[in-house]
Simulated scan of single mutants.
Amino acid sequence: MSRQFRSNLAQTIEAFLEQKHTLGFKYCENERYLANFDAMCAGQFQNETTITREMGMAWAVSLPNESRAGLSRRMSSVRELAKYILRNGEEAFVIPTEYGAVPSRKHIPHIFSHEELQLLFTTADRCFENDKFPLCAIEPSVLLRLLYACGLRPYEGRTILRENIDLDDGTIFIPESKKLKDRVVIMDSTMLDICRRYDEKAKLIVPDSAYFFPSHGRTSKCHDGHWPARVLNRCLINAGITEFTGNNPRPYDLRHTFATRTLLRWMQEGYDLDSCLPYLSAYMGHEKFQHTLYYIHLIPDFFPEILPRVASKFASLIPEVSI
């Protein structure tokens, strides 16, 4: 534990974090929030030894320029701490869930067409050539192809460690992904060849990098969380792909496209989806099987010609459509 806590809650916070770490949670961002909460308590509530209503409501005040999602994450950390105190038989105020609640918004993913994917990847190959750091000119095209070809979550792609990608057998080990689930992803021969050629160049430029996609040559640091979105948006603009019927594409939509097109291909080839879906679920690292079934729900929207084949078998999962 790298942070120092100074309030009367210091020992409680440290014990709570130790429990989380013991259970396998990294809890890095939450530890930062709790350090800020501890600083507030040390400055404004020096005599309190547990979380009171006054402390909780003071923490629940939205900060300048704070997003709803940021407020929600900040509230969640202190809420969990209060529940920990209650489980240990002491009194504590739990911040009500309506404070920091993020309104649910249904995001309809953009499923890329074959033409859009081809144009996107071709553009990614050339639109970063003028970047000052040489590796930045070739990283984007590999990242975007990897997100699509392997159905990776954006953060899984950008944080790949060199030791976790085996360019001999074409596998990528994804440790502690969503809900701390490990999995192994297999690349096809085309993606493996692209990664091998990229790695040969990367090792010449940053031979000691711990990450497959090092941030501007820093051996121990990967790109920040906004990098995939910056890369995708720049490619879309340069490719002239700017008109969309629904939401603007996000890096995550490359993963959605992989899953949807995989299911579509299986249907067209006559595979039994009951048998295939568990494999796709495990490959993508879904916590629940229902998360994989979600992609069947998308198919009628983007590929209406396939609807008759799946309507009877998965009718409960497919919405009614009007022609």
Rank of each mutant, 00 (worst) to 15 (best):
A101P: 02
P96T: 01
P96F: 06
R87Y: 04
L152N: 05
E139G: 01
L119Q: 12
E91K: 14
R153I: 01
K132A: 14
D131N: 13
S141C: 13
P140H: 00
H107E: 08
P109R: 06
T122Q: 09
F121E: 04
T122H: 06
D125A: 14
H107M: 13
E90V: 08
I111V: 06
L152V: 04
R87T: 01
N130Y: 04
I108G: 06
Y99R: 03
E90N: 14
R153C: 03
E139C: 04
S113H: 02
R153S: 04
C127W: 02
I95Q: 04
F93M: 12
E98V: 07
D131R: 15
P109N: 03
I108K: 11
F93D: 13
D125R: 14
L135W: 11
V102K: 12
K132D: 12
F112I: 01
H110P: 05
R153L: 03
I138K: 15
N130R: 08
L86K: 15
S104A: 15
C136H: 10
E115H: 08
A92I: 07
L143I: 05
A149P: 08
A124T: 00
H114L: 11
C150S: 11
G89P: 05
L117A: 03
V94K: 10
V94Y: 11
L143F: 11
I108H: 13
K106A: 03
G89A: 07
Y148K: 08
L152P: 04
A124E: 02
L147Y: 00
P109A: 03
L143H: 03
D125G: 11
E116S: 05
F121C: 02
F93I: 04
P140D: 03
N88Q: 12
C127F: 01
I85H: 05
S113M: 03
L144I: 03
V102T: 06
P134C: 13
L146E: 08
A101H: 09
N130H: 09
T123Y: 02
T123N: 01
E115A: 12
L117N: 01
C150A: 15
E139I: 10
A92Q: 09
G100D: 06
E91M: 15
